[in-house]
Design a protein around this nucleic acid. Structure first.
Lengths: 362, 362
DNA sequence: CTGAAAGCGCTAACAA
DNA sequence: TTGTTAGCGCTTTCAG
């Protein structure tokens, strides 16, 4: 007994295979009457399509994905790219190709690079819109041409992008707050060192932190806005720590954790203040080991890249819908698991990446 | 420019597609001379076979994966299965097919079920060997027949299985210890409630905990072996807590967290003892909210399932090597991120919980 | 040893 | 509205 095919159904319904196809796919050009009959027969036969045959018939349109993400900060965006490549390589066989055209850093030249990619007529675009407003028109144009745009790491919510893959910033802040409150005596005062509060991601992390910190019985929370600047972060922290001494914990929202740690050392408070940082890179290890950094909330760039590609391929290849937004759970990094992260262990257990198409950098 | 097919090669080699097929598959009836020529051309063209077409022609899905994992404990193994299905579905178009033959619970009937699957001549087998010794001969036979066996959640290290995908038990224990030590005053005494110490996973989690707990300045650590039994766990915990009162924290290694929490309540110590549990299910939520459970070390069954399938497909479809072992990083669950896990569906959601998608990462 | 040709089950373009 | 038919890329059988 063989699996029933479209021809069996056709025979039983006294119609042609073409009609069965129309019925099964709800295509136009068929009576509701015959459609129902055919569907009933298909149902009763337990028909399931042969996907290999369908794939063969439909012919796989090779999928081109344009990727424009920053180069700097390397420790972060290299991982993001690795995730993108890793997932794309798995579908090489199906003709998936990447076109990579990086920007130097977040928000630099991204319109330029994205429009270059757009000119290549890809099927989808993966972008990290550093300044969403400038990029929105381009994104909208791409979408209007049927090119799916997926933002990764940073969103452009005002645009028509199909989807966005980001870390859940509220959960980042909340986790930091809960850990901080757990590690410190009740009512301890804390500081949040953030980037720019008009960046949505930073604001949400900060909100998440302050809200939960209050809820779980933490003390006062002060804000330091460091504008992503190393010196500013150091100076402001140092000033604060030299003056007041009620601060027991610091949550660093952005990548600026090292200057904060140094400021603590300079103020002679190493080990006396718990720091919770963001993301993970080799330079943080000594501070973990000296007990300066108690934990870090890791944004999982690798996973973000992987998922961005996955969403696109599931959409293009398997017809799955693209979710408006995919928020990932951050990872908690502490001394106990630190050395198991590929960011640190260096022994990148990532698969060898055979065919990767470097863009056509103009 | 389209992907080169067997016909392009044939044309370039001045032979027929049939001959190319013989060359590519090392079939008999072809001169070494022409074979070499054809292979060289295929190589230079970067030829890769269209698996859908092959599947259609051969009349069989290119990849059959047999899956035998337990049904119970549902909250855990349902997620494992979901991960397996999710990843397999992405390759439907290539004809990847799953054969699911669950056992009732870990270690029950697994030889029976596995041999049923083996009889279907799959290309690979995903197993959860509850009692590895009993299953080892079967695993070895499968491997000797070229059927790749991947253990998931539980390993059978003495067998010839190709690979194993498990959570990193040492990291589980270490994370629990570091969190515990962070939450409690220096030198606090702790208890580890484990299953059976002759189960490698339980032993390693316990070791990881005790080692790191001592290192970071924790106090004494007592062991309770509860043999996966609810009553036993409750009784032993209750007895211990009623007697001594130096215990400040409990790490529950296995799924037995609820009886432990109840024992704490019964002893009138709710909120005074920090509990760190394992995995995550809806029944734990109230204890999180009452502050009985401070954190849980989540084994990410979904990700385990996904990765098991991914390894198999990368191996069979793309020729990647299977790693002997893939150890995943556990997730830390606390009140702050609890409701973002799909394991905790709508129950008492403070906020709309976006679906949390696991990504494949170490 | 090699070539030619018939499908595998489905889709899509064209006829009727 | 429905039927017919020509492939999709590969395997396989049967001639040459």
């Amino acid at each position: 007994m063989k699996k029933p095919g479209i021809r069996e159904i056709a025979k039983l319904a006294n119609v042609s295979p073409g009609t069965v196809d129309r019925a099964l796919h709800g295509r136009k050009g068929i009576t509701g009457e015959t459609r129902r009959r055919i569907l009933a027969i298909a149902e009763s036969l337990g028909y399931t399509p042969d996907l290999a045959a369908r794939a063969l018939s439909v012919g796989r349109a090779p999928v081109h994905i344009g990727v424009s993400i920053p180069r700097e900060i390397h420790h972060y965006f290299d991982r993001l790219l690795a995730g993108i490549r890793s997932e794309a390589n798995r579908f090489e066989r199906l003709g998936v190709k990447l076109f990579y055209s990086p920007t130097e850093r977040l928000g630099r030249d991204d319109v330029q690079k994205a429009s270059e990619l757009l000119a290549q007529q890809p099927d989808a675009l993966i972008l990290t819109p550093g300044n969403p407003c400038a990029l929105a028109p381009l994104i909208d144009e791409a979408e209007s041409r049927g090119i799916r745009v997926v933002c990764v790491d940073t969103d452009a919510p005002a645009s028509k992008r199909s989807s966005a893959v980001c870390i859940n910033p509220v959960v980042c802040g909340r986790l930091a707050a809960e850990l901080m409150a757990g590690f410190l005596p009740q009512g301890s005062d804390a500081v949040v060192v953030t980037g720019m509060l008009d960046v949505e991601d930073h604001a949400k992390k900060t909100e998440g932190f302050t809200a939960l910190y209050a809820e779980v019985g933490g003390g006062d929370v002060q804000l330091i806005e460091a504008h992503e600047d190393e010196d500013e972060a150091f100076q402001k922290c140092f000033a604060l720590l030299s003056g007041s001494n009620s601060v027991a914990g610091i949550y660093v929202n952005t990548v600026n954790s090292l200057p904060v740690c140094r400021a603590i050392g300079a103020a002679g408070l190493a080990g006396r203040i718990k720091v919770i940082t963001t993301d993970l890179f080799a330079g943080m290890v000594p501070f973990f080991e000296r007990g300066v950094i108690a934990a870090s909330i890791h944004g999982r760039p690798f996973a973000q890249g992987e998922i961005a590609v996955r969403l696109i391929l599931d959409h293009l290849l398997n017809g799955r819908q693209l979710p408006k937004e995919r928020l990932l759970m951050p990872q908690v990094v502490m001394r106990s698991n630190l050395h198991y992260f590929p960011e640190i262990s260096g022994s990148t257990a990532e698969q060898p990446a055979p065919v990767f198409v470097e863009a056509i950098e103009l």
